[in-house]
Computed example of a mutant assay.
Amino acid sequence: MKHRTLGTSGFKVSEVGLGCWQLGADWGDSLSQETGFNILNEAVKNGVTFFDTADVYGNGKSETIIGEFLKTCKTPIGIATKFGRAADAYPNTYSKDVLRKTVEGSLKRLGVDTLDLLQLHCIPTQYLKEGDVFNWLRELKEEGLIKHFGASVETVAEGLICIEQEDLLSLQVIFNIFRQKLTTELFPQAEAKGIGIIVRLPLASGLLTGKFTKETTFPENDHRNYNKNGEAFNVGETFAGLPFEKGVDFIETIKKDMLPDHLTMVQLALRWILDHQAVSCIIPGASSPKQVVGNAEVSNLEALSPKTHKALKEFYKSIIHKEIRGRY
């Protein structure tokens, strides 16, 4: 596993981290604590040193499982969690007191004295523009409750607002082969300011694994079912904002015309992201230890050829981009 620095003033992170939404079992099949431990153990065994979670994942379940795991883990792990989507704050009751209460809860569940990274969790744009929340974060940092702060955002515009905060460490963004706009409209600006990029949904809710067909169905409580057209939250968080059937068609074209013979679709999708210098870390989720191993191995793959990068870029610009829905 290779490592990169999160921004210019942050800490070392494994190129491949672990997204921990699934540990909270907010959707799909519920994971037991034992399965969660197996996933976390396998991640550490394969060099993963960065976990990303949030207070709302399973109403604290994800943080709790991670906290219990950390009690027995001897490897230093960087933990990022989030604030801003719980009912006591979202969508319009943000305050310094609510933020402090959230942080105290996360500290208790994770069993730590200070948070390595606290991220604003896709809070409404108006609060990013007003900027008070960043001052509240600075106060918590001065008190030692958090070491760094960043923001998870939905759009390029929100990212550009956030990077004007000089002490912002990182941005968490949706970025994958299906959503390439950030390469020119956000990454250069973030790099220039020394802000790290954490990539969520690198596999577009599983579409980029190449395992789905148009006949694939998902459980009723899976966001790939109930939010496939943005019925519950931003459609961009599900299948990168693509209509499912079109996404399957795009995958077949990539497999046929752009996938190198020695790579799987997962390897192509993850390696493509890591080939971007601005990216500090990708955080694919995993519902089994086997998936963790496969994701971690991508760090040691060679960069994709310029020919492959050019083909994927042209495919996005000419075909994919116009099909993306949702805030972007």
Rank of each mutant, 00 (worst) to 15 (best):
W272I: 02
R271S: 12
A240R: 03
V248C: 10
S280M: 11
R179W: 07
F239E: 04
K181Y: 02
V266E: 10
Y226T: 05
R179L: 05
L201Q: 11
N234E: 15
Q277W: 01
V279H: 05
P202L: 04
Q189N: 04
N229C: 10
A190D: 07
T213I: 11
M258P: 00
H262L: 04
G196A: 05
A232M: 12
G236R: 13
L207W: 07
I254E: 03
G206C: 12
Q267M: 05
L274F: 13
L203C: 09
N229E: 15
A232Q: 10
L263I: 03
L274H: 12
A286N: 12
E191D: 13
I254N: 04
H223I: 12
L201I: 10
I283V: 15
K256F: 01
G206M: 12
E237G: 00
E231D: 13
P188N: 06
L208M: 13
K181V: 05
L203F: 12
F212N: 06
E245T: 13
L203V: 13
P188A: 08
T209R: 09
L268P: 07
S288L: 14
I282S: 13
A190I: 04
K228T: 04
E245Y: 07
L201M: 05
A286Q: 08
P243D: 11
D261V: 14
A232L: 03
K211L: 12
E245R: 03
T213G: 08
Q267P: 09
K255H: 08
L186V: 01
P219Q: 11
A204N: 04
I251L: 15
T209I: 09
P284M: 10
L270G: 02
D249M: 02
Q277S: 14
